[in-house]
Design a protein around this nucleic acid. Structure first.
Lengths: 350, 350
DNA sequence: CTGAAAGCGCTTACAG
DNA sequence: CTGAAAGCGCTTACAG
């Protein structure tokens, strides 16, 4: 069933059918009704490819989760407590706005081609990028496509420094720095003076922000930065488990530990438990992200809540906005975090 | 940049460019190389809509998660421990096979139109349906599209009874019946004689299977079906929490409880805890699905592992297979479950 | 208000 | 082996 068939059945031309479908104003009610009836009756749907080819939109937005440098099978998207909710929330939001979402994960540089292709092949009206690392080259390539693009968690300074036509670009961030400051000062308020950290991946914006906030806050309060208490991490469970176990075996513990995300905090908790170290009795522990699991482990994890809902929704709205805009303009939005106090921190013993 | 431009630059016709792109055999190595060089140089990608319109595939499969009759905002896909991993695994698998995945959730009958449209508009080569309820009408509509379709968790008997041309259809199931029998017999083996159940949604295939297996196994072992111990459920946390709390308040407990899924089992655990009822000391509890959370709650939940990985992968492979098949044929596959014994069950006191 | 026609960017018989 | 041409199913100036 093509528009031509509908036209014949309704006794009009394809042009008119098209006008009805696209809701043009210049077709009389009677004609519109006649055509609509036939469309209804035959359950006709215009071929989306033909429409797109003839210049219409695809009503599809792309969602690309970038997670290079994770080992094969190590952390597929579905076990990733950060990506998984974003993916789901983007789907929910976009669907509610009448858009399909086309998804592709990027685990390797080759996968990255797929996302470039999605733009180049005009499969999507615009795209959302999650998990981008400090890689301005990659961003430049994508921005170069001149299609609406929203990047979640990226260093705006780096983008501003570039000579890019970024009018079809938007960046969504969370206030990781402020959130971390709040977490650290909460620990300080509890009397802790030896505060360690499990670092996130330092080539992500949030990883750097969280670390810098930690370092600066300790300094500002005149507290020592103890090298042994600064654990390397990459936001992944495995590494955190290993590092926490190492710290536990070493014998000397900080009195509190800030973990750059909850996934790592929970792994650390498990490692500590296996070494007979109790949270929060022997060590206070605080995480970041407030993933669902955090409220269900025991002790329940105190964490800085990442407004992932708002961020995902904003990303979708932004990309749709850019698609519709006559004269799109660069914009950026940063969402506040919130400290969620549960049971994993205690006042310091003196 | 269009194929015509490439053709000019390479000094050949569009036909030849197309042949190179589609890897036809009848073009000499020299010509191919010449064309490829230009394509490379200009980063040319054929417009996917034009290709699709001219008869090529879309390299996209649809994934549709149906979850009608859940309240607005109640159980969005990302909090659904059953859908979330399927979505993620389907994405991972399809991407690895070079396919994009187009996703749409279905929370209302109106949303359902979107999935029909995706087929009708030829946005996808084929689709995967998850969460289909006992609704042959809906299935019939979709099967009527004559596009490759894979349904996860559906009653084959119901499909067989229909006069459908189902050659482009495949059904993926898990062995819920056998899995439940194993769970119940495990409880019986521990000496339990009063075994309750929290039912799943009875209009899903797995919901019915799990219940029937429960009922039949008790009967076969000459154990009583106690009405008070048969709790209504719908696979969702909230309902299970309420029902378990009611059971707890009622005073009289079964010695063991089978929950039709883990999500509900864990909620029941929380409800029991709040009533001072200890799992497994006061009541043994066993779940189904083996979601990630089950290994992390305390006590760790004994559960029947649903081979969700295998099912999701099989669904993708099946739909791709149907897309490629010369003469597609109906097929069905049922995956075995496995009892994962953890800490939530104890021998019955006598 | 409405139709004939050109065009979107490909693929694929067809003919040579 | 390769090109000219038709066709995929729409939309949209253009002309009336």
């Amino acid at each position: 069933m093509r528009s031509e068939d509908i036209a014949k059945l309704a006794g009009v031309s394809r042009s008119t059918v098209s006008r009805v479908i696209n809701n043009y104003s210049n077709v009389p009610e009677a004609t519109r009704a006649k055509v609509l009836r036939v469309i209804e009756q035959y359950q006709y749907e215009p071929n989306s490819f033909a429409r797109a080819l003839a210049g219409k939109r695809t009503d599809t937005i792309g969602l690309f989760a970038i997670s290079m440098n994770e080992k094969e099978n190590a952390s597929r998207i579905y076990q990733n407590s950060y990506f998984a909710p974003i993916v789901d929330l983007v789907i929910d939001t976009a669907n509610a706005r009448g858009f399909y979402v086309l998804i592709h994960t990027v685990y390797s540089p080759e996968d990255f081609q797929k996302i470039k292709q999605a733009f180049l092949q005009k499969r999507i009206d615009g795209g959302i990028l999650v998990g981008t690392q400090k890689d301005i080259e990659l961003v430049r390539e994508l921005v170069g496509q001149e299609a609406p693009l929203v990047i979640v968690d990226y260093d705006i300074a780096e983008i501003m420094a570039e000579r890019l036509n970024k009018n079809h670009l938007a960046v969504i961030n969370s206030m990781d720095y402020e959130g971390t400051v709040e977490a650290i000062e909460y620990l300080i308020g509890l009397g802790h003076r030896e505060i360690g950290i499990i670092k996130g991946r330092m080539n992500t914006f949030s990883g750097r922000e969280r670390y810098m906030a930690y370092e600066n806050t300790l300094k500002r309060h005149g507290l020592p930065l103890v090298e042994d208490f600064i654990l390397e991490g990459d936001f992944l469970k495995e590494t955190a488990y290993r590092e926490a176990a190492r710290l536990a075996s070493a014998g000397k513990l900080p009195s509190a530990l800030f973990s750059s995300n909850d996934d790592m905090a929970i792994s650390a908790m498990e490692a500590f438990a296996e070494h007979g170290i109790s949270v929060p009795d022997d060590i206070s522990l605080i995480g970041f992200d407030d993933i669902q699991l955090s409220a269900r482990v025991s002790p329940k994890l105190t964490s800085v809540k990442l407004p992932i809902d708002d961020m995902a929704k904003a990303a979708v709205e932004k990309v749709i906005g850019l698609c519709n805009a006559e004269a799109p303009a660069f914009s950026t939005e940063s969402f506040p975090t919130r400290l969620v106090i549960r049971d994993s921190c205690k006042p310091a013993r003196d």
